[in-house]
Amino acid sequence: QNEKLANELKSLLDELNVNELATGSLNTYYKRTIKISGQKAMYALKSKDFKKMSEAKYQLQKIYNEIDEA
């Protein structure tokens, strides 16, 4: 289960640069939040902690959705 979550989180991290570029014309909230979420996700992957990875995955998905809707 950890392996599956780690792969999903890696996949979301692969999209980080594209989504970060998409924040160029948006409010600074999005820029700041996506950077923080990305850092948390990288830390969670290194720690291999299921709870941290779950939270990081949720945060990344949430900010990606917010950027898409903005």
Rank of each mutant, 00 (worst) to 15 (best):
L21T: 06
T33Q: 15
T23L: 10
K31Y: 09
G38V: 15
K52W: 05
S37L: 15
K10C: 08
E66S: 05
G38C: 15
V18K: 13
N19P: 04
G24E: 15
Y43L: 13
N19F: 15
K57F: 11
K40E: 06
S54P: 02
L26Q: 03
I67W: 03
I67G: 01
M42L: 13
L5I: 07
T23K: 05
D68S: 15
K48L: 12
S54N: 08
Y30W: 09
E3T: 09
L26Y: 04
K4S: 08
A22G: 04
S37M: 15
I34S: 00
E55T: 06
S54E: 13
M53H: 01
T33M: 15
T23V: 08
E20M: 15
N27M: 06
Q39A: 10
M42A: 08
S25M: 10
E66P: 01
L45I: 06
A6G: 03
G38F: 13
E20I: 15
K52S: 07
K52C: 10
R32K: 13
S11C: 12
R32C: 15
S25A: 10
D14F: 07
E8R: 02
N2P: 06
I63N: 01
D14S: 10
L21D: 06
N7I: 12
I34Q: 00
Y58H: 10
Q59H: 07
K40C: 12
Y58C: 11
S54W: 10
T33Y: 11
V18Y: 12
T33W: 14
Y30F: 10
K40Q: 09
A6D: 02
E55I: 10
I63G: 01
E69A: 13
T28I: 13
L21W: 08
Q59F: 14
E15D: 10
K62S: 05
F50V: 08
K10D: 02
N65H: 11
R32H: 14
E8Y: 04
I67A: 02
L21C: 10
I34R: 00
I36P: 01
N19D: 04
A22P: 05
K46G: 06
N27I: 05
L16G: 02
N65V: 06
G24T: 12
K35C: 12
Q1H: 09
A41R: 01
G38I: 15
S54Q: 14
E20Q: 10
A56C: 04
Q59C: 14
E20G: 06
I67E: 01
E69F: 08
N7Y: 13
I63M: 03
L26W: 05
L9T: 00
D49Y: 02
S47D: 04
K48Y: 09
Y64S: 04
E55V: 09
K46M: 12
K51N: 09
N7E: 12
G24D: 12
T33A: 15
Q1G: 07
K10H: 05
R32S: 07
I67C: 04
Y58A: 12
I34K: 00
F50R: 04
K40M: 13
A41G: 03
Y43F: 11
V18C: 13
D68G: 11
K52M: 12
Q59K: 05
M42Y: 12
Q1D: 14
T33H: 09
L16F: 10
K62L: 06
A70F: 08
S25Y: 07
K51E: 11
F50E: 06
Q59V: 08
F50S: 07
M42P: 00
K10Y: 05
S11F: 06
K46E: 12
F50T: 08
V18L: 12
Q39R: 13
L16R: 03
Y43G: 07
Y29A: 04
K40H: 06
G24W: 09
K31S: 07
A56G: 02
S47I: 10
S11E: 11
T33E: 12
A44D: 00
R32Y: 13
K31I: 06
L60F: 01
N65F: 09
S25D: 06
T28N: 13
I67N: 02
E55R: 07
K10M: 08
G38P: 00
L13K: 00
A70D: 03
N27R: 06
D49L: 04
N27K: 08
A41I: 02
T23G: 05
E3P: 03
V18G: 08
K4I: 13
V18H: 11
A6T: 07
L21F: 07
